[in-house]
């Protein structure tokens, strides 16, 4: 599993960082930042799916 973030759609709700803080963080202005750009460890898959399904801007895509 990998994640793609659409930086143009992200408006900094931070709901991904709340759902999966190991994978998503905050940049200087509070928009999302992807912390794991490569393969996501299996233990975090549930959290990443929740990050995707909690983003109000639908800015996260999961690639499997």
């Amino acid at each position: 599993m990998k994640v793609l973030l659409d930086y143009d759609s992200c408006h900094g709700h931070q709901m991904c960082a709340i759902a999966a803080p190991e994978v998503f963080g905050s940049d200087e202005i509070g928009n999302a930042k992807v912390l794991i750009t490569g393969e996501i460890p299996a233990a975090l898959h549930i959290k990443v799916r929740r990050a995707e399904s909690n983003c109000p801007e639908r800015a996260i895509t999961i690639i499997e």
Partner: peptide, 20 residues
């Protein structure tokens, strides 16, 4: 609740700046 794309802080370019 697992799926919660709530918009209490709005949506789009005017997302509440003070949400955090």
């Amino acid at each position: 609740r697992q799926n919660n794309r709530h918009v209490a802080f709005g949506s789009g370019i005017h997302r509440c700046a003070g949400s955090n």
